[in-house]
Design a protein around this nucleic acid. Structure first.
Lengths: 136, 136
DNA sequence: CTTGACCCTGTAGTTGCCACAAGGTCTATA
DNA sequence: TATAGACCTTGTGGCAACTACAGGGTCAAG
């Protein structure tokens, strides 16, 4: 009963990942090549569904496919020290924090700029002015 | 004296934009086709340098090339109401704010996850566990 | 036996560039 | 005058992570 095999469409629905995305994951080696029916249809196992779900969750957390590949390799090695996992996650967190900092600075600049808008003509628009270079 | 024309390399240095990027902007219609020397070298005017600098500043603020194109069109129309500029900038700000919100939620999740790490084996790694689907 | 929903492969588009390759040009120096 | 090296030209392909076809094959229901 654990042998229920899924077509790509069924897998796709179960994992909430587009079928074309699944094929893409296969092409880049993130998902294994599945079994095939006589008619060359892909057939997925429960384990492969679990793998795809893992990928989807990781993507939701913003991990890159490269890092997800690394996480999946680690996940298979149950006896191993989980420090490597920690490193990947911490690196990712650091990147998220950097992006937040960048975007926060950007938000400030944009708010200032928009706040200065006097709603007149382009000729005295502060936004355009801020973007325009000073004539040398 | 206002007639000083620049090669793509000179333009590139002056505006702090890669030469290949300038050619790319030309291809997509963001920069105009410049004059050419007898040897087919591109020659840029001061006005074109100003346009490229405008683009660079706008990119630094995270505007997409499409929006920059729109901003440049508006910027040329000095008598026009600057409301359209305000709309573009405000839309952009809204997107930045959305991204900050998304990333902030992500940061929280990642921090929680990493904080739960007990530094044992993969088998009881909270991070891997959180990513793994519950077996049905 | 046909309709419609599924599946297949392969290719091209998205965004904003960067990195070649293979050639032409220009300038300075030996 | 020859030549080295820095510049310029076009065209192509790559990056991330998909998405959207086109042009076919397959399968189950009515």
């Amino acid at each position: 009963m654990a042998n229920q095999r899924l077509t790509i469409g069924e897998l796709s629905k179960a994992a909430h990942v587009g079928a074309e995305t699944v094929r893409y994951y296969e092409r880049i080696g993130l998902m294994p090549r599945p079994a095939r029916t006589a008619a060359n249809y892909r057939l997925y196992s429960a384990e492969q569904l679990a793998r795809l779900s893992f990928i989807r969750r990781s993507r939701e957390l913003g991990f890159t496919l490269d890092r997800i590949k690394a996480l999946l390799e680690l996940a298979g090695d149950r006896a191993r020290d989980c420090q490597a996992v920690d490193v990947i996650a911490s690196d990712h967190l650091a990147e998220v924090e950097r992006k937040i900092a960048d975007l926060t600075a950007l938000r400030r600049t944009l708010r200032d700029l928009i706040g200065q808008c006097r709603h007149g003509t382009i000729a005295d628009c502060r936004i355009i002015e801020a973007l325009s270079p000073v004539p040398a």
